[in-house]
Amino acid sequence: MSELIKFKDVTKTYEVGEKKFKALDKCSFTINKGEFVVILGPSGAGKSTLLNLLGGMDTVTSGKITVNDSIISEYNNKELTRYRAENVGFIFQFYNILPSLTVYENVELVKDIVKKPKNAKTVLKEVGLGEHLNKFPNQLSGGEQQRVAIARAIAKDPDIILADEPTGALDSKTGVEILKLLKKQCDSNNGNNTVIIVTHNTLIADIADRVIRLKNGKVESSTVNRKPKSIDEVKW
């Protein structure tokens, strides 16, 4: 498998008042194409920062991030916008879908930014929302809203899906279903899609191809799981 993502000595510093705070401290790791990756760590470890940098939503203080042989850490704003639009599908803990658009419209929205999106209806059927196309977000449960967010990410047909605590706000049963959807997405397209999940839930690590552990802004370990369990095997 070819190398997709490479972090080299990535540091991110925030300034709070006069104090400087290192959210990430010289992080280095690689992720291969088609992997299902779990980034683990307690809160405050720098997980979300890492994901934001990878998603092109924030810029590094120092270090180098390479994606698909392009150095995205050197991208300007315009290039980052294009990168976000074409390469990344982002899934948030609190879904962040637009309240004034229907389920269908929320997914159809990606037409505005991607040249060849997937058919919104098909994608929504895939995530099991075929019956709810014309509902508004506030008429849906949390799990259903997260599916809309997943459908929106999938519809862009991106190389990478980034999910920030996608099950964090959900009960375990719904969480499992969401994970299944993400896994399915990873396996589709001949196993060429990469899914990266940030979580503090260690159980999810068992199903991952690769587990990256963060602690205090540093990469503690990056291990490849030789025999990942199937989702149904894990006791939640």
């Binding site: 939503m57 916008t81 294009r82 990168y83 976000r84 982002f90 948030f92 930014i113 991607v114 862009k156």
Partner: peptide, 16 residues
């Protein structure tokens, strides 16, 4: 504000 953030994350350009 968060909707603007979401749109940005989705890849909408600032101008749009």
């Amino acid at each position: 504000r968060t909707i603007i953030g979401t749109l940005k994350a989705l890849g909408y350009s600032d101008i749009r």
